[in-house]
């Protein structure tokens, strides 16, 4: 069930209405009437919340979306299940334009959208009813609903029997988020869209949540992850989309996207920390990723931008540094011991 964005633009000043879906859409010129300002998001007088977005979300993708605050991430993902409709362009799911209200409500069970702080949307008297809200809205029979709820709670590793009658408001923050998460999973979506799913969680809960998301992706779900954390994006995603002021700034594999460290920095984003360290090492003259260059450090000096040819995570960076150290234990120019110190510096326990 691929989701295709075809030149999608969205404007708060001239939002398209579903009933106009059959008429020709507003022309760009007409949409540029100065009017009310958007209540949040981009620069107050920017016309487009998102502009000319063009990509396809394939089945089995793990797409990361990054961007500065107000760059249109939330607006973009709300197009994916027809909550908002593009002012220009169209969103196709399985080849059907979801500007149509009926088509949009049909796909809502298939495309699960988890908003930021989903625990703030809990409402039912007990966990069971809250998780069952989605499946019931889909019109499933009670025994089917029951199975959905059991499966969903098991997926988020919550105990069905001890929690089913508990009030969601008595749970801890992390458990509340799990319940809210289960509420979306219970609809058995084939695509899961997550807006900052680990914001405000403690490190342990955060990790178990990210592992849960990775596990769901392994089980065959298509996942879209909006995050400010480049480490998470580099580790989990197979594709990354970077937005800048509502425009598509970069789209590609994490290797491709994070190769442009300086450009990312210019729009207020960073690169994964291991990659950042690798870039700085290269800029300092450590011949990473290029064994032949290790013999003549001058060659890396021709690469002042500090971009490396591959994307490093902590393990691969450590391996490479160890390999370099073994290759040239006596070379004075490299001094890998110092880089190890640099990596640890700043910690209070150093």
């Amino acid at each position: 069930m691929p989701i295709v964005f075809e030149g999608v633009s969205y404007s708060y000043t001239a939002p398209a209405k579903p009933k106009d879906a059959k008429k020709p859409r507003i022309k760009a010129k007409e949409a540029s009437i100065p009017g009310e300002r958007p209540a949040w998001g981009n620069a107050p007088d920017a016309l487009w919340a998102i502009h000319d977005i063009d990509f396809t979300l394939e089945d089995g993708d793990f797409l990361g979306i990054a961007g500065h605050t107000g760059s249109g991430k939330s607006t973009l993902i709300q197009h994916m299940n027809g909550l908002i409709h593009p002012t220009l362009g169209r969103v196709l799911i399985d080849g059907t334009d979801i500007a149509d209200k009926k088509a949009a409500s049909r796909i809502r069970g298939k495309v699960g959208l988890v908003f930021q702080y989903p625990e703030h949307q809990l409402f039912a008297a007990n966990v069971y009813d809250d998780v069952a809200f989605g499946p019931r809205n889909l019109g499933l029979p009670p025994d089917e609903v029951d199975r959905c709820v059991r499966d969903a709670l098991a997926q988020v590793s919550l105990d069905f029997d001890s929690l089913r009658t508990a009030s969601p408001f008595e749970l801890s923050g992390g458990q509340q988020r799990r319940v809210a998460f289960a509420g979306v999973l219970a609809m058995r979506p084939s695509t899961l869209i997550l807006d900052e799913p680990v914001a405000g969680l403690d490190p342990a809960t955060r990790n178990s949540f990210l592992n849960l998301i990775a596990e769901l992706h392994r089980q065959g779900l298509t996942v879209v992850l909006v995050s400010h954390n480049m480490n998470d994006l580099a580790r989990l995603c197979n594709r990354v989309l970077v937005l800048k002021e509502g425009q598509q700034f970069a789209l590609g594999s994490p290797q491709e996207v994070f190769a442009h460290a300086d450009e990312l920095k210019a729009i207020g984003l960073g690169v994964p920390s291991a990659q950042g360290l690798a870039n700085r090492l290269v800029a300092q003259g450590v011949p990473l990723g290029d064994i032949s260059a290790a013999l003549s450090p001058r060659r890396t000096a021709a690469n002042p931008e500090g971009a490396t040819k591959r994307l490093y995570d902590i393990e691969s960076l450590a391996d490479e540094l160890a390999a370099l150290y073994k290759a040239q234990p006596a070379a004075g120019a490299i001094q890998p011991e110092e880089t190890v110190h640099e990596g640890q510096a700043g910690g209070p326990y150093a």
Binding site: N81, L83, R108, L113, F115, H120, Q121, F133, N137, G183
Partner: peptide, 15 residues
């Protein structure tokens, strides 16, 4: 603003 967000979240759950 919050009602709008909650509304959209519940719509996403088929409300």
């Amino acid at each position: 603003f919050e009602v709008q967000t909650i509304y959209r979240a519940q719509i996403s759950r088929g409300a």
